[in-house]
Amino acid sequence: MTTAATEAKADAVRAALAKREGVLVAFSGGVDSSVVAALAHDALGDDAVACTAKSETLPDAELDEARRVADEIGIRHEVVEFSELDNPDFVKNDGDRCYHCRTMRLGRMYDAARDLGIETVCDGTNASDPGEGHRPGLRAVEELEVFSPLLAQDVTKEEVRAIADTYGLSVADKPAMACLSSRIPTGLEVTEERLTRVERAESLLRDWGFTQFRVRDHDGLARVEIGRDELERALDAEFARAANEHLSELGFDHVTLDLDGYRTGSVSPADEDEDDEPLVEDVFAQEYPSDD
């Protein structure tokens, strides 16, 4: 349930959006961009468009979700395509990978907006984002002058979820979903092969009923993280057998279960709100200590 203060902020976002002749919302189908899309649709009707950028780092299931949520909102939905793998700065996977990704993704949003005769591109950055660790993607948002209405009106993540709930959005409680490249440790190149096997492995976990998880790809070693509320289900001989069998079939050389459970940003400094994460060689030193 929203408070009067939260409702006032939502009204302020609608008013700010209504001043634009039209907006294109960079739309992932997550709760932040979905709330912006819903508020924009309220404020501008058919002059608001949601746009999702399809690439190798976006799981097919997330694209399907974005289409479904856009339909739920009633907003026009466009899909554009690009490939981060065309950019060597992205592929090398250093601490600025998210910056390069966001720059390309938002660049395609501006291309789509121009094609539609729209000047304003919006995103779902909220007031809780700037303080959450190493966030190079936010630098791209600032440099490209993307309009972040939630941030402008000081709408926090908690308030975003409350607004989503008032709209009855099915993603109101959806966990954060970073792109597939966040599963590859900093310093290890992002390749289509690694992205594909991670996506397929996580699809299996989803099919098996898990809701909070990651499969980290340490150069052929799959490190499976399961949310602590669900970890007990994974501490089972049958799960271990099935996970090892199916993930090996997907191309992983070794399959491990992280006993610390799921946690954001556990492989890369640019990922999921965390910084100071181990490089791939550090993780292998932990998994396979030498005899010295």
Rank of each mutant, 00 (worst) to 15 (best):
K9V: 05
K9T: 01
V13N: 09
V13F: 02
A15D: 15
L17R: 02
R20F: 05
G22A: 14
L24E: 15
L24W: 12
L24P: 14
S28Y: 10
G29D: 13
G30R: 13
S33R: 08
A40W: 07
D42T: 05
A43Y: 07
A43S: 08
L44N: 10
L44M: 08
G45R: 07
A48I: 07
A48H: 08
V49A: 03
D60W: 07
A61K: 09
E62C: 05
E62R: 08
R68A: 15
V69H: 09
G74Y: 05
V80C: 13
V80S: 12
E81N: 11
F82G: 15
E84W: 00
L85K: 06
D86L: 02
N87Q: 04
D89P: 00
V91G: 04
D94Y: 01
D94C: 03
H100T: 09
C101N: 12
T103I: 01
T103Y: 12
M104K: 14
M104I: 12
R105Y: 10
M109C: 15
Y110K: 15
Y110C: 06
V121M: 11
V121A: 13
D123Q: 11
G124H: 13
N126V: 02
A127L: 02
S128E: 03
E132H: 00
V141G: 13
E143M: 11
V146E: 12
A152R: 10
Q153A: 14
D154T: 05
V155F: 00
K157H: 02
E158S: 04
V160N: 05
I163S: 09
I163H: 13
A164V: 13
A164P: 08
Y167M: 08
G168T: 07
G168D: 11
V171F: 02
A172N: 06
A172S: 11
D173M: 08
A176I: 06
M177A: 15
M177S: 15
C179M: 06
L180P: 10
S181M: 06
I184W: 08
T186M: 12
V190M: 02
T191K: 04
R194F: 07
T196N: 12
V198D: 03
E199Q: 11
R200S: 14
L204D: 10
L204H: 14
R206V: 00
R206H: 08
D207E: 15
D207S: 13
F210W: 01
Q212H: 14
H218E: 04
D219F: 02
A222L: 01
R223N: 02
D229V: 11
A234M: 00
L235S: 07
R241A: 14
R241F: 01
A243S: 04
N244F: 00
H246F: 05
H246W: 01
S248D: 10
S248P: 01
F252Q: 03
H254W: 11
H254D: 14
V255Y: 02
L259F: 05
G261I: 07
T264I: 08
V267W: 03
S268N: 09
P269F: 02
P269N: 14
D276E: 14
P278G: 12
L279P: 03
V283S: 07
A285V: 04
A285H: 13
Q286C: 03
Y288A: 08
D291V: 14
D292E: 10
